[in-house]
Design a binder for these strands. Structure first.
Length: 676
DNA sequence: TTATCATTCAAACTCCCGCT
DNA sequence: AGCGGGAGTTTGAATGATAA
């Protein structure tokens, strides 16, 4: 029985109505809704979860956050807000009643916990437990004006509205032109929301001591807020001397620009790239000053104080925060941790962080959605750009990359504009696809991702401007503006089809990874959590030493401290329930286990054993063979240590886990602070 | 191309006071 | 009461940096 349960938050923290529905969203008359609170609610959810229902709620972050804080994990959900946003915008469900309905309580982002409350909630709320069901409080006060009045009736009304909303959404999916695509997208989006909540809950391991050490090395010892650390003070002095401006405040762009011009430098901005082209003693200290100020203000001690608690960084992920379906973050800048400070991200003892870099995701997605088989063939190896070079379209890998990005971003000028025609000759199908998307955007039409997420349409003013231009307004300036805005929108839609489809893929990947990690639940009761950091696409993943991981479908750093890269998101934590799984899947373990010693090394050993019987020349040959074998063996080990290169992160993780356990290493669960 | 973030700086606004 | 400062606060744009 594929039951769908609706959980509706109540007017006070932890109060909810559970309504049982069938798979088409119809309430079961024999099972009346239950109003539950606190521990009863937790127990009921746990009991129902055994039937693997799909939980339906207004907002995953609040509802699931509350459950996670109480140690409850669920497998599936339907996030009403995220789903509504997709369905309202999608061209595939444009004819639905939902698309035509007025904006209401389910539209827009979840009412955040209030700007001040959300700030504190994301800092301490994450680990201090109760995340109140704020959403309902706001609904209650809005609808009755009196939160205390007749809470039960209020609950019931809310439950009915929620059931009605689900019905509206299911109908929009059923009646869509491509219901299966939308169904998958909606499920993936909701699964992504679960992942985000789990990641926000678990946090990313963060070594505060390493971070502090790094800051002290670069900036000098910590000083009070508002003070310049020693190193910055030195540099500021050097800048003032070089410009002969003793009272200059280098933090003020205006003052700085005046001082630079006063010293005879012909610069028009204080941007780094412009300064780099100038030969003057001030340039070196100024560039270093800017770099360090950036570090101090963006990821310095005050950042650490507000975002890192008890060795964990708790970013606030916002699924669906970007129109293309990518996630955003609220505060903490989790999407752009500078390479400098990444070494503070270090796995807890006994744990591994795994890097999975979906290299060159977007061009590969483009090959897929446009069904450009020639381009797909070029991407058959690990490096799509190298494949493009060998296809003969361009000379170097760098050119391939620039040209490819230009095709997806709509570049017309510069290097990539110059290379574009060659790319278009080599891969006409793919290029025509993005070109069509751009043309549609210029006409103000909707474009849609592979699974059905549509780009927003331009505003009314845009259409008015275009209409005016079409009717031949004599105003030349207006004509130009219309053309420019049309091109801008076309560039947006050109990029959207690729980026949003990549986000579709990433969500599906995340959902699959989450599920398979859950199925990995080890028999060892000490192990009930696996930590996976999953981040962005594209090159430049991070390595222990800060070096970028280059191409290669998926790979891992060779030691315990690796990181995982996936879609444009951040840290995923799957927390399988100990009782839900058996021992590690043996097939997966076998698949990822280190292969038997190579024949090369076996032969080398044999050769060394028999060396005494050989002539000096043969001995020399054997010695060289042995050295070669040793190199081969070393490389093989290296490859074996990067099991994810092999293709299956989950299997590799299972193997790694088994290895750690058999070696008697303590494999302890992630300690997420428990609610009081 | 998408995003985020901190900082500076000027404009806009609020509030109070003294003067007419 | 009404008006015009001036001080203080708020807001929003610009700037320049980061990530992919």
């Amino acid at each position: 029985m594929d039951a769908v349960y609706v959980i509706i938050s109540g007017t006070t923290a932890g109060l909810a109505t559970l309504t049982s529905l069938d798979d088409s969203g119809v309430a079961d008359p024999d099972e009346p809704p239950q109003l539950l609170a606190g521990g009863d609610l937790v127990e009921a959810v746990e009991a129902l979860e055994l039937e693997n229902p799909r939980w339906v709620w207004a907002d995953t972050a609040t509802h699931y956050g509350w459950l996670l804080a109480r140690g409850v994990r669920v497998d599936r959900c339907h996030d009403l807000r995220l789903t509504r946003a997709i369905l309202r915008g999608s061209a595939l469900s444009a004819g639905s009643a939902l698309a035509a309905s007025p904006r209401g309580e389910w539209d827009g982002p979840a009412p955040s916990l209030g700007s001040d409350a959300s700030a504190s909630a994301s800092v301490d709320g994450q680990q201090s437990g109760p995340v109140p069901f704020e959403f309902d409080a706001s609904v209650a006060t809005r609808t009755t004006g009196d939160p205390g009045a007749d809470a039960a009736a209020e609950q019931e009304a809310l439950a009915e509205r929620t059931v009605a909303e689900l019905a509206l959404q299911l109908d929009a999916i059923r009646s869509a032109t491509e219901p299966n695509r939308l169904r998958l997208l909606v499920a993936a989006e909701s699964a992504g929301a679960l992942v985000a909540a789990e990641m926000s809950h678990a946090g990313l391991p963060w070594r505060e001591d390493l971070h502090d050490q790094l800051l002290t090395e670069l900036l000098g010892p910590r000083v009070a807020a508002g003070q310049r650390p020693a190193r910055l003070d030195e540099l500021a002095g050097a800048i003032r001397r070089a410009l002969d401006a003793p009272r200059l405040n280098p933090d003020s762009p205006q003052e700085l620009l005046r001082a630079l011009q006063g010293a005879g430098l012909g610069v028009t901005t204080t941007r780094s790239w412009e300064l780099k082209g100038v030969d003057h003693p001030v340039v070196a200290p100024l560039l270093e000053y800017k770099k360090l100020v950036r570090l101090l203000t963006a990821n310095g001690w005050s950042w650490m104080e507000s975002w890192v608690t008890d060795g964990r960084f708790f970013p606030d992920y916002v699924p669906g925060g970007v129109v293309s379906g990518r996630w955003a973050t609220r505060g903490g800048g989790a999407l752009q941790l500078p390479k400098q400070v990444r070494r503070a991200v270090t796995a807890d003892d006994g744990w591994s962080l795994v890097v999975a870099d979906a290299a060159q995701l977007e061009p590969r997605i483009l090959a897929g959605i446009s069904a450009d088989t020639v381009m797909a063939e070029a991407g058959r190896g690990t490096d799509l750009y190298a494949g493009i070079v060998s296809s003969g379209a361009v000379q170097t890998r760098a050119e391939a990359k620039v040209a490819m990005l230009g095709a997806m971003y709509g570049a017309t000028s510069g290097e990539s504009g110059r290379l574009l025609p060659r790319l278009a000759r080599a891969f006409p199908t793919a290029l025509a696809y993005v070109e069509n998307a751009a043309r549609a955007g210029e006409r103000g039409e909707a474009v849609t991702s592979r699974l059905g997420r549509s780009a927003p349409r331009p505003g009314e003013q845009w259409f008015e401007l275009q209409a005016a231009a079409r009717e031949g307004t004599p105003d030349e300036r207006l004509q130009q503006q219309a053309r420019r805005e049309a091109r801008d929108w076309g560039r947006f839609t050109r990029n959207f089809v690729v980026q949003a489809s990549a986000a579709d893929w990433a969500l599906c990947w995340l959902a699959d990874l989450r599920r398979r990690l859950a199925a990995l639940a080890p028999a060892d009761p000490d192990v009930d959590a696996l930590d996976v950091a999953a981040l962005h696409d594209g090159g430049g993943a991070l390595n222990d030493d800060g070096s970028a991981l280059d191409s290669g479908a998926v790979r891992a750093a060779p030691d315990d401290d690796a990181y995982a890269y996936g879609p444009r998101t951040a840290t995923a934590t799957a927390t399988p329930r100990p009782e839900s799984g058996d021992a590690l899947p043996s097939a997966a373990t076998a698949e990822a286990a280190a292969p038997a010693p190579t024949t090369a090394s076996a032969e080398a050993t044999a050769g060394a054993d028999g060396a005494a019987d050989l002539s000096p020349a043969d001995r020399e040959t054997a010695r060289i063979a042995a050295i070669e074998a040793e190199i081969a063996e070393r490389e093989r080990r290296k490859a074996a240590d990067s099991p994810f290169k092999a293709a299956d992160p989950v299997a590799a993780m299972a193997a790694r886990l088994a290895e750690l356990q058999s070696a008697g290493r303590s494999v302890r669960p992630i300690t997420t602070p428990t609610p009081s």
